[in-house]
Design a binder for these strands. Sequence first.
DNA 1: GATCGAGACTAGAGCGCTCTAGCCCTTGAA
DNA 2: TTCAAGGGCTAGAGCGCTCTAGTCTCGATC
Lengths: 339, 339
Amino acid sequence: MAGESRSSAVTMADVAERAGVSRALVSIVFRGVVGASAENRERVMRAAAELGYSPDRRARLLGSSRSRTLGVVFGLHHEFHTELVERFYQGVERTEFDLALGATAPTRTERTAVQSLLEFRCEALLLVGPTMQRKDLDALASQVPVVVLARDLRAPSCDVVRTDDEHGARIAVEHLVGLGHRAVVHVDGRRAPGAAERRRGYRKAMESAGLSAQVRVIPGGLTEEDGERAAADVLSGRSRPTGVVAFNDHCAAGLLSAARQDGVAVPRSLSLVGYDDSRIAGLSSISLTTIAQDSRRLAGAALDLAVRRAGGWDEPPVDTVVPPRLVVRGTSATPERRR
Amino acid sequence: MAGESRSSAVTMADVAERAGVSRALVSIVFRGVVGASAENRERVMRAAAELGYSPDRRARLLGSSRSRTLGVVFGLHHEFHTELVERFYQGVERTEFDLALGATAPTRTERTAVQSLLEFRCEALLLVGPTMQRKDLDALASQVPVVVLARDLRAPSCDVVRTDDEHGARIAVEHLVGLGHRAVVHVDGRRAPGAAERRRGYRKAMESAGLSAQVRVIPGGLTEEDGERAAADVLSGRSRPTGVVAFNDHCAAGLLSAARQDGVAVPRSLSLVGYDDSRIAGLSSISLTTIAQDSRRLAGAALDLAVRRAGGWDEPPVDTVVPPRLVVRGTSATPERRR
DNA sequence: GATCGAGACTAGAGCGCTCTAGCCCTTGAA
DNA sequence: TTCAAGGGCTAGAGCGCTCTAGTCTCGATC
């Protein structure tokens, strides 16, 4: 058969034969455990290289009772999810585990992704921003250790790692107040996940700054269109604010483009803070000051939990909250003096 | 051990016992092949459901000599790559194969990704926009069937599926000319992959339209900053063009923001066409007319090739070229009458 | 009534590893 | 000298499936 010339199946036995040792010894060498002389170790590696051998993952996993695999379910098109995945890859190198990716997309459900990861016998699952129903999540968590990221759950049946959204909104406000703003409004996310926390953070921060009288929450949303719509409320009226904390970057971008179209100079006449540090915030034509989630710590904490759970750690679910940080770009500045 | 209460290992043997049949029969049922009575099929499925059994992928793959797995190497942060991955998922359902993802990121090399997929004994590899050196690619292709997407190779050692960039630039020009533009310039991508083809497409289209005299290529680049820089060239001078075909969307976005800052109305005074249909093109504040790659056909063609190669198809490498299409948004319109 | 064939089912040998048990040898302490 | 300890190595039994080569049953055919 023509295909035979390709790698074909060079197995551990072939390597063993060529190196003149037993299969078991080859296994020892490839697992990197003690029990082989330096000489033989070298011999085996050479033989393997000559034959182009690489161990068969499937067999390897089957042989040991543990799969040493962590499953990650993430949204293929969510930039923040993919950022977390990258962090996972980085973090997992320090462990004895490997990662298996299960992507989610408009045409591929979480259910499908989870199913396929389960077939690989992952020892724990990392779910990034899962949208599945609560009862499905609970059911899953009873089958396999689960760590949920970026979704707030009350009374969780599994570990949760998330960003402190209240704190995020707070530091956004503090940034503006620190620059000298007093009239700072919040364009919120209505009922989106996280919206309530951000609203609360905004309110509390304003109160702490002695600006209770200035508190004003304007209904917004998640999209640019929502931001554009909210712009009407923000910009009209006598009491135009000098600072806006928006629910997220897209909303802020809509607001920004509407403001500029109205001839309002940003940041000279209006400062704007987004949320998420999504890619558009970094575009030079937008250059949005925003709140960034600490993907590194989020991923690190989640990975740590997953590994411990996989190792049999059996304590009640843990809720880990990571503070976000401010990223200052071009849409925030000292307010101009008016009147 | 505490972990035992979780799924633990329920195997085919457990299902067989519960259903009162042999393991082999359970296998037959789960593989969905003929050879089991309706009654027993039902019995087995019921037993499996009761036990919460799902077949072990690792063992399954090991048992059959073929892995029935296609590996995909893609850039985690490239939106176009992830779009292709989604298409792959869709397409692969119609086949007998499964997908294994190997993500690439700034901190994770293609080499690592390929290595891990190879350990899974993928029967073919789909490389999306691979950046590895030519000789590494050739070496890889000699080990396992490889299909390369979105990278132009001359005299390839493997199948290539790509977009017809020359054609893309051509239809961008034709769109503008069709709207009545005559002074159409091209802000190019210098030496970026695809830049030469797009330049050629622009030139040829202009010539076909009888506008050879208007041909003008301005050095650009891939980023917004490149676009902003090119804007100076485009907008200055007596002979300002009415239409611009940019190398890509980011370049076009930079151009757009610079033009607007200069008080040039888009699309009234200047029409702009980008390339790639990236996410920013769809942002309402940008709303860029652009050229979209046909991810569906690209993925379909690549998948088809991979499956055939995996099946032992052994013809010389195939080069598949897919035409892109125009996406009209808000940055292109009939030119205003001047003078 | 013997023969055949098809369908339903099973036994059991792999697949390529891991890992335990045990062998052989050398070394150092008793 | 004896024995324990331990390093280096191997045999061989799994791991949970797939798949070939059967066996058995039953009804149709000659």
